[in-house]
Design a protein around this nucleic acid. Structure first.
Lengths: 219, 219
DNA sequence: ATATCATTCAAGTTATTTATTGAATGTTAG
DNA sequence: CTAACATTCAATAAATAACTTGAATGATAT
């Protein structure tokens, strides 16, 4: 009993780890963290076929990382709780801390521009009450609609170029996107700074903002 | 660039997750957390062949979870830092929180005896200064020798029966073992309580005690 | 230098996992 | 009840990972 109990425990822990060991499932988790969605929506967003997305989602559900409920004809997936986000973030921290490769990739995104430290969510909240900051949500419009930081302006990355000249050179700009796995904000900040603007990334993205218990706008 | 950068990032995060997705590697990590060891020692402790252990260790090293240094003829592996422990613990928390299976396994270990809440490391440290507690280290002697909580008495699980009658019924007993993945302390507490003794588990094991920066005895 | 020892590498087999395809299930709307 | 739809299941081929065996490397000691 005792040896097999040990093996059974390790299997369960490994099951959770295996659930987050496939890039496709990390993409799905990132999307689900933006807001609950049905299988078809998630498959669209991640570029997976519906059957494949469904299988991956069931792997995530078996590991307890997401839950599903039926809503009419659709099955809606959402994150189980903030511990799922914590796991995703710990993976990122470990990867960035230990793997030179990751830093190289992220540096490549800035493409020559200097990248300042991201601003913390606490600090951004303070700036918002001062009214002294422009917030950019660099995600596709449909994700913005599922929830965004109050007062944020939605500019998807492909549209950013057209708006560059519209910003005040003195304005403090904070850009965010899906969260730690998302590179849109990195790229947006690089573009904004190349244009001489005072832009920084937000630490984390909308899911982390929401997990902090902060207000989220849905209009 | 941007799409492939995203994919490359997710691959790196998945690499870390995949490293902890095999039970054999979780066992190795648990052993390394007891104290740094060479490949042969780790292979012995985990029941893996040397070549197989070596391969797994390299997977862990590639993920940045462990580091290796050469010491004479041996290559000694140790945990990179406390973040590796944090990942292991988060896996456990997620598994226990979400998987009914885990609770069932752990309940089975108590085998009928009621299992009280574990005592925190802070609380144990306080009891130690009061001198009012008997600490049992339920690990094999060689792991005890690599480091243990000061004042702890080493009784490996197979030996416990012979000592049961020796304990004072009034004494407060705290048992610990390798850490969250280890079931020795669970089983020891069950045996002690069945014998009418006032025993509890320590939260976490020696690696967590050490990670807290607390004193560790090596004699 | 040579022998010895611990570890790593390489090749091959078996087992798991992934993505795809098409069918089956279960729900809603008429 | 039937049709339409979203999701899941089942079967397959392709890719990846695990374990074993035996050889190669690299460091130490004679």
């Amino acid at each position: 009993m005792s040896i097999s109990a040990k093996a059974a425990l390790l299997d369960e822990y490994a099951l959770v780890a295996r659930a987050v060991s496939a890039p496709a499932r990390l993409m799905l988790l990132e999307q689900i963290a933006q807001g609950a969605r049905g299988v078809e929506g998630l498959a669209d967003k991640t570029g997976l076929t519906i059957a494949n997305a469904s299988q991956h989602l069931q792997t995530l559900r078996r590991a307890g990382l997401v839950t599903s409920r039926r809503d009419g004809k659709s099955v809606i997936y959402s994150l189980s709780d903030e511990k799922t986000l914590a796991l995703m973030d710990l993976l990122r921290v470990l990867a960035e801390r230990n793997l030179a490769q990751v830093e190289k990739i992220l540096r490549g995104l800035s493409d020559g521009a200097d990248a300042p430290e991201p601003i913390s969510r606490d600090a951004l909240a303070a700036r918002i009450t001062e009214g002294s900051v422009t917030i950019l949500d660099i995600r596709p419009a449909d994700e913005f609609e599922l929830g965004h930081i109050p007062g944020a302006m939605n500019i998807a990355l492909p549209d950013l170029d057209r708006f560059l000249s519209g910003f005040d050179t003195d304005a403090e700009i904070v850009a965010y996107c899906r969260g730690p796995y998302c590179i849109y904000a990195h790229q947006a900040v690089a573009a904004l700074r190349k244009h001489g603007l005072n832009a920084r990334r937000l630490e984390g993205g909308l899911p982390e903002w929401r997990a902090d218990g902060r207000e989220v706008a849905t209009v």
